[in-house]
Simulated scan of single mutants.
Amino acid sequence: MSDPVWQKSSFSGDDASRDCVEVAGAVDGLALLLRESDSPTTVLRVSPSSLHALLRVVRPVK
């Protein structure tokens, strides 16, 4: 089994010491994985629809 490829927001900048939320696709392709960069061993597994619903609530409407 291969390790997930983690990506961080481009808003996090290039500073390696900056903490940010990272996202990866689950190996099975059915979920997304989320983690905090300063605690990389704690991983949340969420469905794409659940993450979309969360982002609709927390992201300001433009």
Rank of each mutant, 00 (worst) to 15 (best):
S47T: 12
S37E: 08
L30V: 07
L55G: 14
T42P: 01
V27R: 13
L51G: 09
A26N: 00
H52Y: 04
A16H: 09
A26C: 03
S17C: 06
S12C: 01
D3R: 09
S50Y: 03
E22V: 03
D3F: 03
C20Y: 04
V27K: 04
L30C: 03
L30T: 14
P60M: 06
W6L: 10
R35C: 10
S9R: 12
D14K: 11
P4V: 01
E22W: 01
L34C: 08
V21N: 04
V21Q: 09
K62A: 08
R35M: 12
S50W: 03
E22A: 07
H52E: 12
S39V: 13
E36D: 15
V61S: 08
L51E: 08
S9V: 09
V58H: 02
V57G: 06
C20E: 12
K8L: 01
L55Y: 04
G29N: 05
S50D: 02
S2P: 15
P4Y: 10
L51T: 07
S37A: 04
P48M: 08
V21G: 02
L55Q: 07
T41K: 14
V61P: 10
V57S: 11
P4T: 02
D28S: 07
S10P: 12
G29T: 08
D38L: 12
R56D: 15
G25L: 07
D19N: 11
V21P: 06
K8R: 13
K8Q: 06
A31G: 11
A31F: 05
A53T: 15
R59W: 06
P40M: 10
R56H: 08
K62V: 11
K8P: 02
A26E: 00
M1S: 12
S17I: 00
V5P: 05
V61A: 09
D38M: 07
D15I: 00
Q7M: 12
V21K: 10
A53F: 04
S17G: 11
L54Q: 10
V58Y: 04
V61M: 07
H52A: 15
G13L: 00
A31Q: 09
S10V: 05
P60L: 06
S49F: 04
S47F: 02
Q7S: 09
S49G: 10
H52P: 01
A24E: 05
S50I: 03
D14P: 06
R18E: 05
C20H: 15
G13K: 00
F11D: 04
S47R: 14
P60I: 02
L44F: 09
C20Q: 07
R35A: 15
S2K: 13
D3M: 15
L32K: 10
V5C: 11
L51R: 07
V58W: 02
P48A: 14
